[in-house]
Amino acid sequence: MLRRAHRFGNWAATATKHSPWEDALGIIAGVTLTALGIAILGQLGFLTGGMAGLAFVVHYWTGWNFGLVFFVLNLPFYVLAIGRMGRAFTIKTAFAVALLSVMTAFSGDFIRFASVQPLLGACLGGLLIGFGLLALFRHRSSAGGVGILAVYLQDRFGWRAGLTQLGVDLLVLVTAFLAVSPLAVFYSVLGALVLNLFLAINHRADRYLAR
């Protein structure tokens, strides 16, 4: 029985390595928090940064399903992931992106908000997405797109993932003026600031060494 189990590798956690079960549970929890944050922002007609922000812009322009657009936009980044970050990171990220795409595609069927105050909703949505991305990063995964780039730059050059994502997110949010009102853009930028400052403070490679 033990020999058969070893054929599938070592599933035990160590002080510096998560077990596959820990990775799976951590990724599912991170994706769930991220999907909830996206649902709040979507309910208010706001956006966020990164590929999710671009998916929101396309969704608002065309009415296409957010989850499907998000999944398609992330496909090119897998080339960078598998070439620079390795097979395990790419597999876990592909799983996270697919799960997040499904959750956001059908979230309207399972959760609705009768009333959300815009300021609170922007901050809470950004914070939930920040917690979700932090969980993914700490399990050597990401929500795709800019997250892949941010993790690579932090590993390669020591640039903080949160600050990298903040810069890209602000550029993405500039395009939001083409899809939503200036007030919605303001709240979207506020949510992005909450999200990325949370990551910049909490996601540091020297503070969390598990892989």
Rank of each mutant, 00 (worst) to 15 (best):
G63V: 04
L33Q: 00
F71L: 15
A143V: 13
L183E: 15
T14P: 11
L47H: 05
S101G: 08
L119D: 11
A122H: 07
L166I: 08
F71T: 09
V72P: 00
L173R: 09
K17P: 13
N10C: 11
G108N: 08
G158I: 01
P118F: 03
N202Q: 10
F8V: 15
C123L: 14
R4F: 15
A135H: 04
A150H: 13
Q43F: 00
L100G: 02
S141P: 01
L133Q: 03
Q154V: 11
H139L: 03
G162E: 05
L119N: 06
G191M: 02
A179D: 13
G45S: 02
T32C: 04
Y60A: 02
V180E: 04
A122N: 08
F46M: 06
G145L: 13
L178M: 13
R87S: 12
T93D: 10
I40R: 05
N10I: 14
G45F: 03
A29Q: 04
A81D: 10
A29S: 05
L124C: 06
Y78M: 06
T62N: 05
S188M: 09
F95N: 04
F198I: 01
A122P: 03
I111M: 09
L100Y: 03
G126I: 04
E22M: 08
F137R: 06
K92E: 00
G30R: 01
R138C: 00
Q43V: 00
A200K: 01
L127H: 01
P182W: 08
G126K: 08
M85H: 03
S101D: 07
I82F: 15
L120W: 13
N202Y: 07
E22A: 10
T90R: 05
L68W: 13
L173D: 14
V168Y: 15
M85C: 10
L124T: 09
V31T: 12
A81P: 12
H139N: 10
Y78S: 02
G53A: 06
L128R: 03
A13N: 12
